[in-house]
């Protein structure tokens, strides 16, 4: 996969959709493409976060620590972004992420990601939208759990 193909994928991701392709190319060029084998961890809950990941190919499980081991709370697939919370808020990883299938990601360092956000406000708005959407989903899930008790 060449850098131009990566840029094409990035453009399909909502938060990057409205950004100038040259900037996306810069981001792709400055980022490392990392491949994980099934079962390999991207990061663990509680670690310090230093990068966000964009899934280029494959799926990943989002797991959280529970009383009886790890609890799978979500699955992420192509064109989705992982691990941005930790680098946005500078807090430890809130969940563990593990490759479910063979997984190819674009690893964007926090430094680069924050710089892009600052230089392109439209990207910031998109990130907010995605986060708000997630929050809404989480709240809904919490409600379901409470209702089930």
């Amino acid at each position: 996969m060449s850098i131009d193909q990566e840029v094409e994928i990035l453009r399909r991701i909502p938060i990057f959709a409205k950004i100038d392709p040259a900037k996306l190319k810069l981001m792709a060029f400055a980022s490392e493409r990392v491949t994980y084998k099934p079962g390999q961890m991207l990061f663990r809950q509680g670690e310090r976060g230093d990068a966000a990941f964009i899934v280029l190919h494959g799926t990943a499980d989002v797991l959280i620590d529970a009383d009886n081991g790890l609890l799978r709370v979500a699955s992420l697939s192509e064109n989705e972004i992982i691990g941005e919370i930790s680098i946005l808020c500078d807090i430890p990883r809130t969940a563990t992420v593990q490759a479910e299938t063979e997984l190819t990601t674009l690893r964007i360092t926090s430094d680069l990601f924050l710089r892009m956000l600052m230089e392109f406000p439209e990207m910031g708005v998109e990130v907010m939208r995605v986060l708000a959407h997630r929050l809404e989903q989480t709240t809904a899930q919490l409600r379901q759990v409470q209702a089930a008790r």
Partner: peptide, 12 residues
């Protein structure tokens, strides 16, 4: 010992 290069983009 390696007599080669680490492959780029392979996690870990």
């Amino acid at each position: 010992i390696l007599f080669g290069r680490l492959a780029f983009g392979q996690a870990g």
